[in-house]
Design a protein around this nucleic acid. Structure first.
Length: 388
DNA sequence: AATTCGTGGCC
DNA sequence: TGGCCAAGAAT
């Protein structure tokens, strides 16, 4: 019901005036105190907060390492996707010194499938900074945290508030949406960011800044949702300017996204007689940086003719084209792979930049989802019935 | 300021 | 189905 969109037959109120009207209605009532946003939100949070693996129990102190680790993983990533990774990381590397002692490749293997792999590289770098230069102690200020690789404005504020009770606003996409609606901000993102941040900061209470940060995010995640917000159960519904004029669901405004570029490539599946396959590590930076892939042709806009692909093969062999294609979608591009497969002698040497690796031990390599899809396609239908 | 960075779930 | 979105950072 709440998600139904109704056509407006009356001219819409200007957002600024809507916000002003709500504010005035409250401030002009001499018998009512000013609306205490933080109090209403925190009371709601105490009853409805989500139980999350990285969240301390009510009254308990948060571990800065656990908070930092969870915040890095949660960047642009859903709670459901993060949970199992977080559990594995914390079990294997219970503190920042343990993580600092791990190799980068161990961290990349543990991160595989979670995406945005620069986060894993920065996580490892930051762990070494904290464990080394900082004596194993996390900075307890926003500026100190912000200086760590992979820690930007949001994450610094979140860790400072949650782990150290610093009075600061952690403004993520949830909070941006909540604030844009609360004040009916019509300016499209990202231009409205500075104003939203200032408004959010004005609501942070002197006490329980960490709970306030998490409460605001919970509110955005469970009540003030992108589509079909549950305004009737929102602790701020009485003072929400967008709600007052029925515009909550259309805020915040965003510029339309650019279409994804499409690329095509041919991947090579070389199976050695001893059961090893040919792999390649991608270069350090950029897309899937430092992760493992199948040797492939360049990614280009146009289709590959099979003859051209054969000439680009990493080694001489009797390549045969596998049926079908493998599609994979990244943030800003999508790619379709054809696969050429070949069996080669056990003595075959690895070409420059590539290495042979036992198929049975593939799990030890840092394989992004793109590579896993190609491997599954090349191996074909399994007897265990896990693939069609 | 605008791009580049993954992946999976949702409707 | 395909577009949208998710506890953003780095450049």
């Amino acid at each position: 019901m709440t998600g139904m969109r109704t056509k407006r037959s009356t001219p819409r109120l200007r957002p600024e005036r809507a916000a002003t009207a709500v504010a005035k209605r409250l401030e002009d009532s001499p018998h009512l105190p000013a609306f205490d946003h933080a109090r209403h939100l925190l009371e709601w949070y105490d009853r409805h907060r989500r139980r999350l693996p990285w969240r301390a129990q009510a009254g308990e102190r948060a571990d800065p390492y656990a908070v930092w680790l969870s915040e890095i993983m949660l960047q642009q990533t859903t709670v459901a996707a993060v949970a199992p990774y977080y559990a594995r990381f914390l079990a294997r590397w219970p503190d920042v010194r343990a993580l600092a002692q791990a190799t980068l490749d161990e961290v990349l293997v543990a991160w595989q499938g979670l995406g945005y792999y620069a986060r894993a590289r920065n996580l490892h770098r930051a762990a070494r900074v904290v464990a080394g230069d900082l004596g194993g102690v996390f900075p307890d200020t926003e500026d100190g945290l912000r200086a760590l690789p992979g820690v930007g404005a949001y994450t610094a504020a979140a860790v400072a508030a949650i782990a150290f009770e610093r009075r600061t606003a952690a403004v993520d996409a949830n909070v941006e949406r909540v604030i844009a609606r609360l004040f009916c901000i019509d300016t499209p993102m990202p231009r409205a960011k500075a104003r939203i941040r200032a408004l959010a900061a004005s609501l942070v209470p002197a006490r329980r800044a960490g709970d306030f940060a998490q409460a605001a995010m919970d509110l955005g995640a469970t009540v003030c949702t992108p589509r079909a917000p549950s305004c009737e159960i929102c602790p701020w519904t009485a003072v929400c300017a967008a709600r007052a004029i029925g515009r909550a669901e259309e805020l915040p405004r965003r510029a339309p996204r650019k279409a994804r570029a499409r690329r095509r490539a041919v991947a090579f599946w070389a199976m050695r007689a001893d059961g090893a396959v040919l792999l390649r590590r991608r270069e350090d930076g950029g897309l899937l940086g430092s992760m493992i892939e199948l040797p492939s042709t360049a990614w280009r806009a146009g289709a590959w003719r099979e003859a051209d692909a054969r000439r680009a093969a990493p080694l001489r062999a009797r390549w045969r084209a596998l049926p079908g294609t493998v599609e994979h979608v990244f943030s800003h591009l999508e790619i379709a792979f054809r696969v050429l497969a070949a069996r080669v002698a056990a003595r075959a040497a690895a070409p420059e930049g590539c290495f042979w690796w036992p198929l049975a031990r593939l799990a030890e390599q840092a394989l992004p989802t793109m590579t896993k899809k190609l491997v599954a396609h090349a191996r074909g239908p399994r007897a265990d019935g896990r693939r069609r």
